[in-house]
Amino acid sequence: MQGEIRAQGSDTPSLSIVMEDRKTTRANPAKAAAEKLNFWYGSNQALKNINLVIPEHQVTALIGPSGCGKSTFLRCFNRMHDLQADTKYEGAITLRPDNVNLVGPETDPIEVRMRIGMVFQKPNPFPKSVFENVAYGLRLRGINNKTELAERVEKALRGAAIWDEVKDRLNDSALALSGGQMQRVCISRALATEPEILLFDEPTSALDPIATAKIEELITELRQRVTVLIVTHNMQQAARVSDFTAFMYLGELVEVDATSKIFTNPAKKATEDYITGRYG
């Protein structure tokens, strides 16, 4: 099975960038690949010809100055733009192994979102108990069996390293938790349905440094279980948590490489300028 995936992944040209750099980071086969992806808000083109491979079970970070399109790109992966009128996709984001085009008009956005989870910038638990928050996606999928729910909620909470903190308050409102705890409940909520890719949209920007550290540690552990794509404003964060880093600027993908390479020896001048703090 592994070999089959590898074979499918390796015919994507962009993957070669990653492949060449095996010395620094060993790349897994692709979980998803953006191919010639363009995106418009009305007449305003926000993404221009993006080609990027997301390796399976690794953390890929998207960095770049504000307005560079990194969040827009991220939100393409689970079709959040469809909630807004007057948006247009062109090109493809292919999900392996079944090669569904996530942004294709023939693909149902809800189906996409059932396979790809997302954690938002601001913790957004529902006004429900901790338990019900995590059980939400399971219930959506028609799982109402109490034992199964309890098991999977616990597993998800453990997976997000928050079980010990909330196990005695599962029936309390999730809104009574601290910001960092809420965010980890949101991560559990996304993990509970075992998504194929987990998207993080600046998940720590609303949190204090200690909560941030916990989330970062969690993200690095999560790669065992799920493919992670994370948008971050914070370059240190990208350096700490990711295996690969993509630098975006003005709606274009400038450079993608192993994180260690990007931060020590970027190939492009623009990347270097950003990393060294010349703009952003």
């Binding site: 079944d98 809800i110 059932m114 075992e194």
Partner: peptide
């Protein structure tokens, strides 16, 4: 083999069309 561990893509699609 695809989709979430407990639900195949076919199951997802079936439930989805009902929803």
């Amino acid at each position: 083999m695809a989709a979430t561990a407990h639900m195949t893509l076919e199951e997802i699609r079936k439930g989805l069309s009902w929803r």
